[in-house]
């Protein structure tokens, strides 16, 4: 996975970059299976490797396929990245160890979900019962976010996209022909 990430940094051919990001998602999905998060792996394989790669390819078809070489200096981002990474690694020294059953995140509420969701909700998949029932508000919010994103895309690119919009630098269609569009 890390190798794929570094290849994404180096490559200038955007087509290859997008394909690599699809591979990256697929590797992440298999990692989730190893970490016993089957639902998440399922979603990542369907969404990350499938749909988002497809959308990026569609964008590339509309825009350009090659990245131009930037003249900006390279050292400042590198310094920022290494300093931030160093601080974050320092921060992990206090974190609970991998796989620890007594980590704080695993103690509050979780035993209740695991022990009682079978009798309270009556369905075997704990992820589904937490998703739809215990955290129903959360999921409602997420659904509304997806809905809003779809509306946003429709507003930006929907029917009659060539008409003039506020903030546009020059009208694609001349003002006098706007009625026809």
């Amino acid at each position: 996975m890390a190798a794929t990430a570094f290849a994404i940094i180096r490559l200038r051919n955007l087509f290859a970059v997008v394909m690599l990001s699809g591979i990256f998602s697929l590797l992440a999905a298999s990692l989730y299976v190893l970490l016993s998060a089957v639902d998440v792996a399922f979603t990542e394989a369907a969404v990350g490797a499938g749909i988002s790669t497809l959308l990026m390819l569609a964008t590339l078809a509309i825009t350009s396929e090659y990245e131009k070489k930037s003249e900006r200096s390279n050292w400042l981002p590198k310094v920022i990245v290494f300093v931030t990474g160093g601080v974050l690694i320092y921060g992990t020294l206090d974190m609970p160890l991998y796989g620890a059953a007594d980590a704080p995140a695993n103690l509050h509420l979780i035993p209740r979900f695991i022990l009682e969701s079978g009798t309270e909700i009556g369905i075997p998949n704990i992820v589904t019962s937490v998703l739809a029932s215990y955290r129903g508000y959360d999921t409602l919010g997420e659904t509304v976010v997806i809905f809003t994103a779809a509306i946003g895309v429709l507003v930006l690119l929907g029917r009659g996209h060539n008409r003039w919009r506020p903030g546009m630098r020059k009208p694609v269609v001349p003002e006098d022909r706007e009625e026809e569009v």
Partner: peptide, 13 residues
């Protein structure tokens, strides 16, 4: 299961 739920929705969002 809780992080699974959070990330499941986060991926689609």
């Amino acid at each position: 299961p809780l992080p699974h739920v959070l990330i499941l929705t986060a991926i689609v969002v």
